[in-house]
Structures are given as structure tokens and as C-alpha cells.
Nucleic acid binder design. Structure first.
Lengths: 233, 233
DNA sequence: CGATGTTTTGAGAGGATTCAACCACAGTGG
DNA sequence: CCACTGTGGTTGAATCCTCTCAAAACATCG
């Protein structure tokens, strides 16, 4: 992790950002001064569950996975954050220790913003505040759906759903593969199952001509069938 | 459901409420004027998943269950709200349709407050806004824990955890039973399992002298053992 | 008293996990 | 250069947990 000299206009923390567009000129200046832009290699930790944090991150580039660690050390991935997303604000606002860890999945650049600034913005900028509550509410809605999903659907259904979701969220490479390339273990930790189960189901999907597999590269060749398995229509 | 003539000082939506204590006198006046205090019988619906809502509820008395409905109609209970809790604000703020339904579990009295007031408060009252984001962040943290729980623990472990949680959240009756009396199906819909599984596990717990059962009344007689099963220490 | 809803128990099937062994591959160091 | 090591991926077999289906006991209520 090293601080880079990326200049402001290259970052996505700008006046077009859905959240930061609500800032006044002075507020934006303040953030621009205070933010620390940093590069991170795959595997490095931004923050760790149980620790106090003193700021939050805006993702400029790359992918960060946010996860909780279960009792036996097994990760449960809560979300993958990409460009434009902000993470780590939860513990800043609720003044609790972090309830998740954040680790780099694809080499990333982040802007770190001190927590006091966030608190001041919530207090003083109504439009920013409203936008932020809307964001958190959406995350909450997503979490509630996920609870219902995990509680009521089979691993097979959830895996199909995740594949569709990864495509819609992160898009495709030139060669039609899912842009985000995850290990089998990471897939398992999203779905909430054992690594071996993911492997078995992926090869079932492959046999059924729903996907093609090339190492970590996955191509969805029958998206409709996957959606049907996932009950997405 | 009928509007009652309960006067302001009887409600918990008052100047001591963790959220509404941040209101100015004028704001508090406005809410007091606009709120609709209503009584609800067990079973009645406050709002329904998929519908638009135009306000939120502050629970004055009773218990409301908030749940999502899965594909096959099976409920997943997200939380039980009691006195002082507010529910239904999510869809007001995120301007989406409700992602959950709310139904009365124990005869209840609620104050309904129009959504525009909430939005205006978030915009204009920094302290209120900060307190609200903290609340939502806590709910989000709880949801994330629950995702990890359901994904990684057995039904047995989760049921033990829920029993402990229900005791800590709702307390005990005079006769040492859990104050909140749920059907087997409701218990199953919190844990995220089949009704029969809850019944079997409850009678296992009973055989192991961890609990006593009297219809819907449950007594925890070996809380430590339950906590151990739930991995709570 | 029937009628309806809830609780209970049993049996069977199926999904998912665990444990184990094995392969492929890349990086390391002698 | 090659053995060594570690990580990630794969497969098989056995086990176990959980669900589903079905039927019966029980409770509650008009």
C-alpha cells in the first residue's frame, strides 16, 4: 500500500458522484484536501472486523470484498465494492467497531476520508444526508433479501443467482467471460456453502451447457436457464 | 384498526425518545399534530411488501413482526419491533416500494407519521439525521450478522440463539416464561427452517432439560447450555 | 359439536457437508 | 535443474442434517 500522486480529476470522488455531487464548493475543497488516495495490491486489508476505524473509503478502481468472519474462520462475503462505491462508513457513523473486514480482490485505488468529515456532512448538509440515508436503506433492503434467500433457497438456486448477479454488477470481458474472476472458495463464501459444493454445482451447470469454465473464467451461455434456476422469472 | 384518542403524553413518541429528542419545539409540534395514533389487533397488516408507503410508524405498544415473503409464500421474519422502535422508514427514504411486510403479533398501538416530514427532518435537522443514520447502520450491522449466521450455522445453533435473543429483547413474564409467545411456525420463520424442525429441536431441548414448554410458553432453564449451543461464549 | 388451525410424530428422500485422496501449477531454494 | 512446498481445484464416498409428505393428536372457537 502506497500513497499515489493521482490527481483529483482522475478520481471518481468528483462532482458527478451520486453522493458527493451534493457538496458545496467549500465542502468539496475540504474533502479534496483531506482525502488520501492509496493503491492496494490484491490481498491487502483495508480494515478488519472488530477494529475501530477513523474514516471511510471511496473506491476509485479495482474491487474490494467486504466480509464477516464466522466462528470457524470461514468468511461470509457481504458484497463486492467497485468504482464509485463507498465502504467502511457504517462503523464511523454508528460509532461501533467494524462489523466486517475489507480486502482487495482486484488491485485497487481508494480515497480515504476522515470520519469526522462524514459526521459533519451528515449534520450540516441535508441533501448529502438524505442521499446517504437512501444509500444505506438500499443496502439494508439488499441485506434483507439476502437473508430470505439464504434461508429459503437451495445452494444450487443461490449459485445460479450469484452468477447472474456478478454478470449484471461487473459485466463481461472482451471474451464474454465474467469480468470478475473469483476463486471457488470466494464463490462459496458468497453463496454461503462449502467450496466442494460450488465445484460440483459448477460442473453440473457446465454439463447442462449453462456455463463454460476455464479456470476462474466463467462464461454464461444459457442465461435464461440460469435465471430460471434462480427463480429470477 | 381504529384511531384512538390516546393523548400525546401517553405515547413513547415524546421528547425522551432516542430519535425524537433531537427535534426542535416547532418540529415536535408538527409531528404531534400530524401523527395518527392507531390501535391494531393481532394479525392486522400495517403495510405490505411491494406497495408504496407514505409514512412510517413508531410503535407505542405491542409487537409488530417485519418479514419478507419468499417465493413459495414462506415468511422470513426480519425483526420484531416493540415500543419505541420505528419501522417502515426504509421505503420512505429510499423511495422504493416496501421490501417487507409488517403485521401485528401482539395487539399494538402505533403512531403513523407522514413520509414528507421524515424527509424534511433528515434534510433540515443534522442531529436527527445523524441519529437516524446511526440507527439504520445498526440495523445493517445486525442484518450482516444474520446473513453470516444463517449461512454458517446449523438450525439447532440458530434456534438456541434465537431463544436467548428473544429473552434478552423481550424479557420474561412473572412466571419466568419468555414474554413473547410465538407459534412454532413463527419461530421457524425467524430461524429460517421448517416448522417441524423447530418442533423436533424444541422437544430435544426439553429432553435435555434446557427448556420447559407449555404450549407457546417457553421457560429457559439452562441458559448457559443454550448459549454454548449458540456459540455465544 | 363439527370445523379449523396448530402441534406432534414418523418415515423416507435428498441435499449438503465432511473427510480424504489426488492432480495441476507456480514459486522456492538447494 | 529438480525436489520441495503451498495453494487451488477436483472427485469420491460416507455421513448427517434437514425437508417433505402424511397422518394423527390436540386445541380453540363459534
Amino acid at each position: 500500500m502506497k500513497t499515489s500522486n493521482i490527481t483529483e480529476h482522475e478520481t471518481c470522488l468528483n462532482r458527478n458522484h451520486f453522493l458527493f455531487k451534493h457538496l458545496s464548493n467549500e465542502e468539496f475543497e475540504l474533502i479534496s484536501e483531506q482525502k488520501q488516495v492509496t493503491q492496494h495490491k490484491r490481498g491487502s486489508l483495508l480494515y478488519k472486523e472488530g477494529n475501530r476505524t477513523n474514516g471511510f473509503y471511496c473506491i476509485e478502481q479495482g474491487i474490494i470484498k467486504v466480509f464477516k468472519t464466522g466462528l470457524d474462520g470461514k468468511e461470509q462475503i457481504i458484497l463486492f465494492a467497485k468504482k464509485g462505491h463507498i465502504i467502511g462508513y457504517r462503523s464511523v457513523l454508528s460509532k461501533e467497531t467494524a462489523c466486517t473486514s475489507a480486502q482487495v480482490t482486484e488491485d485497487a485505488i481508494t480515497s480515504f476520508i476522515p470520519g469526522e468529515i462524514l459526521v459533519q456532512l451528515v449534520k450540516n448538509n441535508g441533501n448529502f444526508s438524505l442521499e446517504l440515508t437512501q444509500l444505506i436503506c438500499k443496502e439494508l433492503g439488499y441485506a434483507n433479501s439476502y437473508i430470505t434467500d439464504i434461508a429459503q433457497r437451495t445452494v444450487r438456486e443461490r449459485l445460479a443467482e450469484i452468477l447472474i448477479h456478478l454478470k449484471e454488477e461487473f459485466g463481461l470481458d472482451k471474451d464474454q467471460t465474467l469480468q470478475i474472476a473469483l476463486t471457488r472458495e470466494e464463490l462459496a463464501n458468497i453463496v454461503g456453502t462449502a467450496t466442494e459444493s460450488v465445484i460440483r454445482l459448477l460442473s453440473e451447470f457446465k454439463q447442462d451447457k449453462l456455463i463454460e469454465i476455464n479456470g476462474r473464467k466463467i462464461i454464461l451461455i444459457n442465461e435464461n436457464a440460469l435465471k430460471k434456476i434462480a427463480h429470477l422469472f
